[in-house]
Write a protein that binds this DNA or RNA. Sequence first.
DNA 1: AGTGAATTTAGGAGCGCTCCCAAGGTGCGT
DNA 2: ACGCACCTTGGGAGCGCTCCTAAATTCACT
Lengths: 345, 345
Amino acid sequence: MPSSLHIEQIAELAGVSRSTVSRVLNNHPSVRPEVRQRVQRVIDENGYAPRAAARSLASRRTQVVGLLIPRSAGTIFSDPFFGSVIQGVAEAVQKRSYFLMLSMMTADMEPGFYNRILKGGHFDGLIMLSSDIDDPILPLLIRDQMPLVLIGCHPFFQNVASVDVDNRAGAREGVVHLIKLGHRRIGTITGPLHMVAGLERRDGYKQALLEAGIPIVPELIVTGDFTQESGYQRMRELLALPVRPTAVFIASDTMSVGALRAIHEAGLNIPEGIAVVSFDDLPVASYANPPLTTVYQPIVQLGASAVELLIDGFDDPQRRLAQIRLPTHLVVRASCGATRYALET
Amino acid sequence: MPSSLHIEQIAELAGVSRSTVSRVLNNHPSVRPEVRQRVQRVIDENGYAPRAAARSLASRRTQVVGLLIPRSAGTIFSDPFFGSVIQGVAEAVQKRSYFLMLSMMTADMEPGFYNRILKGGHFDGLIMLSSDIDDPILPLLIRDQMPLVLIGCHPFFQNVASVDVDNRAGAREGVVHLIKLGHRRIGTITGPLHMVAGLERRDGYKQALLEAGIPIVPELIVTGDFTQESGYQRMRELLALPVRPTAVFIASDTMSVGALRAIHEAGLNIPEGIAVVSFDDLPVASYANPPLTTVYQPIVQLGASAVELLIDGFDDPQRRLAQIRLPTHLVVRASCGATRYALET
DNA sequence: AGTGAATTTAGGAGCGCTCCCAAGGTGCGT
DNA sequence: ACGCACCTTGGGAGCGCTCCTAAATTCACT
C-alpha cells in the first residue's frame, strides 16, 4: 500500500484539527454541517481511510466479526450448505460496515492457538458454526466471556445466543408427509448424532412416527455424517434389509445425492420403489433425479440473523442471550411421490 | 474479552523487560535460551497473547491475508467450487500463522468502500478470486500496489502473480477423449465468456476439434454461466437442435448436474444417447447419475498455492510476479461411455 | 587479570488513531 | 449590553505494542 495520508494531514488540508476529522470519521454529531462537509470532501478527494490498527488500538473496537468453523473442516466445505452460511454472514457483515475474519478450528491445533486467535483481540465478537455438542472450544469461549452467537443451538449451554431452525419440527413435517402418503415402513438416514441438527432431525422423525402410532424400528434408523459418501453407504444398508422400507427420510440433501445413487444402483425407481424426503433444499435438490421433496431451511438467513444478533448485542444486553428459531417448510417435488397420491394433505 | 495481561506485566512476572518479551514473541534470535524459556513459560501460564491492533500499529504488519470475492456473489457461493477454494486458502493461511479476512465485492458497493477496505490496512496482501476480465477493481489494486495474487489468471494484466490451472489443456484433453471415442458432433456448454476460465475451456474445446480436423459448428457452442440452471437450459437448447450432438463437453460439474437433468427429461440415456465430459471433479461428479467423466482440477491446492505465493512474495520479490499453473487430468467415469468403447486411449 | 568484540538486555520514541477535558464561539434572555 | 447556557473545536494523553539505540553483560584471547 502507498504510504497514504494520515488524519493529521487531512486535518491540515481541511483547516481543522485532528479531532474534528476524527469526529467526521465517526459520525459524531457535534460538528457543524458545513465543516463536516468540507472535511468529508477532503477525505473523499484523497481517498483517505483511517488505519484499522490505529483505530482499534485507540478505540478498543475492531469492527471485525469472527466466523469460527469447527474442526470437521475437510468434510465441511464440500457441502454447499456451508457456502451459503458463509454467504449469509459475509453479506450481513458487509451491510453493517463490519469485516469478516474466517477461522477454522483444525484438529491438529497447536496448543496456544486458542489464545493467539481469541485473545489477540482480532474481532469484537464471534459467530460459531454448528459445532459438535462436545466441542471443547465452546466452554472456553463462554468462560472468557467472548461475545458469541452460535449457528445451530447447543443443548447444554442455553445461556448463549444462537440462531437455528426448528430441526425437529421440520423433520417431523417431512415424515408426516410420508405418513400421509400412506407409508408405514419409513427409514431414516440421520446426521451425526454428536451434532444438534443430527439429533433433532432424528427426534422429529421419531415424533412423527409415534404420533401416528407407528412403532419405531431400530434397524430403520441409520446414522450418516452429512456427506454424500455416508448417504450412499447408509442407503445401501437400508436397501439390504430383509424387509426394505417403502420410504426414507434423509437428514440432508447432500446425503440424499449419495442415497439416490445407491437407489439407482439397486435398480429401484423413485418414488415407486422407495420414496424420499430430504432436508435443506439446496440448489441441487431441484436438479436431482428425481427432484427432491425436501424441508427448506433458510440457510443464508441463518448466517445473516447471527450477524444481526451479534452486532446488536454489542450495545443491547437484552439481545445477548436471544435464541432465534427460523421456520422451515416442506417443498414438495417428485421424490416423495405426492404427485401420484396427491391432494391427501 | 477479559482485560487480560499486557506485555509489561508479563515482563515483570518473568523478571525481564518489555523488549525481551517482545523478542520472545517475535522469535528474535538474540535471547538467551534459558531466558526465552522462562518468558515463554510465563506467557503460556497466563494465556497471554499480544493485542493484534497494537502489534500491527507498531510493526506495520497485520498477519492477515484478505480474500476478495468478486461481485457475482449470489451465484458464487452455491457452487461448491468456491467452498473448496476458501478451504484451501483458509488452511494454508492458518498453517502460516496468518489470519484470513473474507470480503465480497458486491455490485451495490458504496463509493468509498474500496478505500475503506483496501486502504484501511486491514491486511498485508490480497488474494482475489477468478474475477471477470473487466473487473474494475483489479486495475485499482494494481495502481495502488497492493500485494496481490489472483486465483485464475488474467489475460491483460500479466504483471500480477496468479495461480490457475491450464484450463485450455484440460478442456482439450476432455474433448480429445470424446473424439477418441468416435464422436464427431460434439457440443459444449461454456462458462461465462467474461471469465478467463470460461474462455480458455472453450478454446480448449475448439483446439481439440481443430486438431482432429473436425469443423467447428457455432450452434454447438452455447454459453452458460457455471450455474446448474444455465446447464439445464443450455442443454435443452442443444438437445432441441435439428441434428443433436452425440457428445457434449460441459465446462463445470455444477452445470453438468443441471444438464443431466435436461438429458433425463428428454428421455435420453447417457452415454448411449449423448456422452458427457465435464470439468472440475467436485465430489458431486462421482455421485451423479451416471458418474461424470470430468477434468480434475486441484481446487483446494489452487487456494493453498495462492497463499504460499502471496506470503512468500512479502519478502521475496522474485515470487511477486510468478504465474503458477497447476496440472489437470481426466478422470474417466461412466458418463463418457469409455467403458464401452474402451481401451482406444 | 585486562582489553576489545560480540552478545544480550533495557528503555525511549513512536505507530495513527480516539477520547477526554478545557477553551473558544454562539445565541438567548434580560 | 451583559451574562449564562450550550454547541464546537483543539490539544494532551494514552491505547499496547515494535524497533532502535545505547548500556550492560558475557566471552575469547592476549
